[in-house]
Amino acid sequence: MSAIKLGWDAGLKSSGAYQKLLAFASLVALIIVFSLASPNFLQTSNIIAILQATSVNGVLAIGATLVIITGGIDLSVGTLMTFCAVIAGVVLTYWGLPLPFGIVAAIAAGAVCGLISGTLVAKMRIPPFIATLGMMLILKGLSLVISGTKPIYFNGTPNFPMISTSSLISAIVPGLPIPNGVLILFLVAGAVSYVLGRTVLGRYCFALGSNEEAVRLSGVNTDGWKMAIYALTGAICGIAGLLIASRLNSAQPALGQGYELDAIAAVVIGGTSLSGGRGTILGTIIGALIMSVLLNGLRILSVAQEWQTVLTGSIIIVAVYADMMRRRRN
């Protein structure tokens, strides 16, 4: 507990603290506005729905945060998530192997794909935007090829939906039906916060985003670390893939594109700098929560979906503008 707290503190001390405070305040403001506007908003079932809806985007955004802190970008997180779900489907449904194999295969597939992106960026010097744009399309295509463009259902693995939807917490604390998907989101957040704040890998995330050449000239194997960071992001996409497949009880090969932009939006709203060097997981979680609270609240108020999208876009611009203004004043 204290370790995780320290990890988050390490981030809070950085200059993103104000932005995160701002993001947190916006989140609270949104919640207050929606609870006043509709009595249905603050229902336990609705809060759990919001959290559940945040889990996939939240986990993806955590992965994206790592790469963005290095000063890079990963556009492939959405389709990689789908690819990992498809791999899980192949292992569990086509091959009929037991559940743990599916879990390991999905996460390993994510790590390998992330490693490939990292290699393209670090060794072949392809700009991250282009390298991961390429990977995004490749993985989208491969998901369709492997699955034969049809969804893979997990009918042979009855436990599979439990990954996301059943509640381990309610078994321990009756009356607190937080689904496992949300639990996994917070576990991943805690673990990655720890990695960022307390490990060498995390240190090099910030260092690379801050001044890559200086790190290289300090004798650090920058290429190797960058590849490792992309691989970790990939592995986290694998977890997101398991979450979404488990919720849908199927791997939907056509899904995934567009998720990367939601993830990046959450990262940016949470105060992580797209130019690298600064960022926190706590901020990213808040960013992801803002997006799902907004969508949920607007839906409850029966605002048309097209307007929900317009509002999300505006929030991104306002969040980044607030950050720019703050930095200009300093």
Binding site: R203, V215, S218
Partner: peptide, 10 residues
């Protein structure tokens, strides 16, 4: 050639 976002010790 310093990393401005890191601390002195880092």
């Amino acid at each position: 050639s310093l990393m401005k976002d890191l601390t002195v010790a880092q």
